[in-house]
């Protein structure tokens, strides 16, 4: 546990340092921000996907809820995103509990497919409900100049401390869960649900709690994303490929169920995305998802426990 907290602190310090050193309006610092957001998203997914091994492919639903709740509250009622953030988290947690009613009995691929469908359903509803979300043309976060109160800044550099904060909260939440009672209970359910039930674990309650925490933190990441890009539409924030599957990809690539997994995953995926879109988007647009698909297949076949296991396994041997 101490080691996990040290890892989080070290990554946070490096990110803060880069934020202070790099050109605040530059491209590099923007990539740092994207990596922090991606690592946070992967870590949120990791709570349920890693500890309980419930592979959700619908986390875009919670991400989108977070992004839209804070943005619409700001547009319609002038509410600061700092107030919209907890409201969105609460809303997402509630939705995750409601979603559990039909999905709690599902296992393995059936659970994944149900969550995938749910994420898509959210995207379609958000597209259709023009009165609530602004519909397919999307909405912009009104810009009022640099402001901590409204959580908006002109250059990407100013976001680094905010995203480091999000990253630390999400990672510490994962660490506490993984080493605490709830984490052990989630792992027991992952190992053997029947045995967990007769051992005296409230399997339903534990799954609901884990799912709600994961959903709420994903919503927080969504709010941060909206504040960063200033523009959201249903196809972006409720996207199955660029949010739901990406969240799973980041965690699986790095190492499912480990703290370092999503961090390593984000460090690989985000720069790769940037490279692909910089060099290949003219010649072969849309090749990035294909490449990510191949990477995912490769990892699942050759290194099911992720890139992190390359380090941990070697240490185990010597």
């Amino acid at each position: 546990m101490m080691r996990s907290l040290l890892i989080i602190a070290a990554v946070a310090c490096v990110a803060l340092l880069l934020g202070a050193v790099l050109q605040p309006r530059g491209y590099a610092v923007r990539v740092v921000c994207l990596i922090l957001l991606a690592a946070s998203l992967g870590q949120c997914w990791n709570i349920v996907g890693g500890l309980a091994n419930q592979v959700s492919l619908g986390h875009a639903a919670f991400f989108g809820i977070g992004a839209y709740t804070s943005t619409m509250l700001q547009i319609k009622f002038g509410l600061s995103p700092w107030a919209g953030l907890p409201i969105g988290m609460l809303f997402a947690a509630l939705v995750s509990v409601l979603l559990s009613i039909p999905t709690m009995r599902l296992k393995g691929p059936y659970f994944s497919l149900a969550t995938l469908a749910f994420g898509e359903a959210c995207r379609i509803v958000a597209t259709a409900a023009t009165g609530l979300t602004g519909g397919p043309q999307g909405v912009s976060v009104p810009f009022a100049g640099n402001s901590w109160l409204l959580l908006q800044f002109r250059g990407a550099g100013a976001y680094v401390p905010v995203f480091v904060g999000l990253f630390v909260v999400v990672c510490v939440a994962f660490t506490l869960l993984a080493n605490g009672r709830l984490g052990y209970m989630l792992r027991a359910i992952r190992e053997n649900e029947d045995a967990a039930e007769v051992t005296g674990i409230n399997t339903l309650g534990v799954r609901l709690a884990g799912g709600a925490i994961s959903a709420a933190l994903t919503a927080a990441t969504g709010t941060m994303f909206a504040q960063f890009t200033f523009f959201i539409d249903p196809d972006i924030v409720f996207s199955a490929t660029s949010i739901s599957i990406r969240a799973a990809l980041i965690a699986i690539l790095g190492g499912v169920g480990t703290l370092a997994g999503p961090i390593v995953g984000a460090l690989v995926i985000v720069p790769l995305e940037e490279l692909l879109s910089a060099y290949l988007s003219n010649k072969a647009a849309g090749i990035a998802p294909l490449i990510f698909g191949l990477i995912l297949i490769g990892i699942v076949v050759w290194r099911p426990s992720g890139l992190v296991s390359l380090v941990t396994q070697r240490r185990g041997r010597t």
Partner: peptide, 9 residues
Amino acid sequence: PEGRHVFGQ
């Protein structure tokens, strides 16, 4: 339970 359900890992 029947079939020794231990938490294998």
